[in-house]
Design a protein around this nucleic acid. Structure first.
Length: 225
DNA sequence: AAAAAGTCCAACCGCGACAGG
DNA sequence: ACCTGTCGCGGTTGGACTTTT
């Protein structure tokens, strides 16, 4: 049995108050991020570290770009999802000012439906052969929302066997029914330091089976660099 | 106008990865 | 090599808000 991450009886849960936000902001401004475990106590917050981290990353960080997603961001998310699956942190990493939670929510509430309406299966980004009839569209769209069929989204097909072979890139584009117009080189222009680091690490070290790294040398993804 | 249904999003939970002892 | 603590991620939930009936 795993220990709880913190002493739950002494922590607040639910929505954050303005005072709590301010305490967290003030503390991080002074001391920087890090050591989420001790931060709540040091900052005088009755929250668990996880909760503080989440609040900061998803809501309080000064570099967050809030507001509606643009068409270009939509396209980019769809393309990255086709490539990476539900690895929201990686996808968000390509969208400056967006968080993984925000991207995930946006995908589940908007983009899934958008794809379904275009006759594309959001799970594997392939064209659905029999497009829904107009009266069926709404039903299909609804069933694709987060509250409809929660989860079961696309994971890139991988064969992580003993040799750690990765086949992410081809997973969603294996046949002619996949989304045909992906042009990652044109769309993605700003190299991510973190991704570059990941790739460099992978080059310098022994291969490891790691969530951060296992896609890094995928041929298609090397286009990002 | 009110109830029901649908949507959105902040926050929580559980798990895996990883570092350090 | 194993254990433990911490962090980060993705899945899921709860409830506020909006739209439809």
């Amino acid at each position: 049995m795993r220990k709880p991450c913190c002493d739950k009886q002494d922590t607040n849960k639910g929505a954050w108050s303005k005072q709590e936000d301010q305490k967290l902001i003030d503390y991080i401004r002074t001391h920087g991020e890090g050591c989420w475990r001790t931060l709540p106590r040091d900052a005088g917050l009755l929250r668990c570290g996880k909760s503080c981290r989440l609040r900061w990353i998803n809501y309080l960080r000064p570099d967050l770009k809030r507001g509606n997603f643009g068409e270009d961001e939509d396209d980019l998310i769809i393309k990255l999802h086709a490539l990476l699956g539900n690895r929201w942190s990686l996808i968000a990493g390509r969208l400056p000012g967006r968080t993984d939670n925000e991207v995930k929510n946006y995908w589940n509430s908007h983009l899934r439906r958008k794809l379904v309406n275009k006759g594309i299966d959001p799970n594997n980004h392939r064209l659905v052969h029999s497009l829904p009839l107009p009266h069926q569209k709404r039903e299909a769209a609804l069933s694709a929302t987060s509250s409809g069929s929660r989860s079961h989204a696309c994971r890139p097909v991988r064969s992580l066997g003993d040799n750690d072979h990765v086949s992410d890139a081809g997973s969603c584009f294996e046949d002619d029914t996949s989304v045909p117009d992906l042009n990652l080189e044109l769309t993605i222009t700003v190299p991510s330091p973190s991704l570059s680091v990941a790739v460099e690490e992978r080059r310098n070290n022994e291969p490891t089976v790691s969530k951060e790294h296992d896609f890094a040398l995928s041929p298609a993804l090397l286009l990002f660099r």
